[in-house]
């Protein structure tokens, strides 16, 4: 049965047809399984989401008096104004996604007790990193706009 592999005229080994077809079928089955699983995950990962937009207007600068620290929980940002400078700090805890609440010392998370200072730096608890700061800009109509897709350096304010 196990005859030596046939060779062609130029002396190269020939792969038996049965072996070649078996190999081809194996690659086909394994390949299409992998492709199927992969494309299922591509299907499951939404291209567009139905949730809130990440860029939104929060109102005119006058609505935030100097010294204000206003948490907008629905948008998960806290608008901070010091003098003429405005910034938006994330109120989503960097630990496990709960909403942090402003406190006298900064921010506090109700879920696992993370604590942050007024700039969002971690001062206690399990949070691994500081709260994000988001880009704030002034639209031509004179409203403040927060872009949550654009994280900026802690301590970067917009002058209004």
């Amino acid at each position: 049965m196990a005859a030596a592999p046939k060779t062609n005229e130029s002396g190269e080994k020939q792969i038996p047809r049965r072996q070649f077809l078996g190999w081809l079928s194996g690659v086909g089955i394994v390949g299409s399984t992998i492709a199927g699983v992969f494309s299922s995950f591509v299907f499951l990962k939404p291209r567009a989401t139905y949730g809130q937009p990440n860029r939104f207007s929060i109102g005119r600068p006058e609505e935030f008096p100097p010294g204000a620290r206003m948490a907008i929980d629905a948008k998960r940002v806290c608008i901070v104004r010091e003098g003429n400078k405005v910034a938006a700090i994330s109120t989503t805890c960097t630990h496990l996604g709960c909403i942090v609440a402003p406190s006298e010392t900064g921010f506090q998370c109700p879920c696992h007790g993370s604590q942050f200072d007024v700039d969002g730096n971690v001062t206690g608890g399990p949070a691994p990193k500081a709260l994000s700061w988001f880009q704030v800009s002034l639209t031509p109509s004179g409203e403040l706009e927060v872009d949550k897709d654009n994280e900026i350096q802690t301590g970067t304010y917009l002058s209004v």
Partner: peptide, 13 residues
């Protein structure tokens, strides 16, 4: 997390 939630946060998806 994104595939599980179908969105950035827990919601309808």
């Amino acid at each position: 997390k994104f595939i599980l939630l179908g969105d950035a946060n827990v919601g309808q998806e």
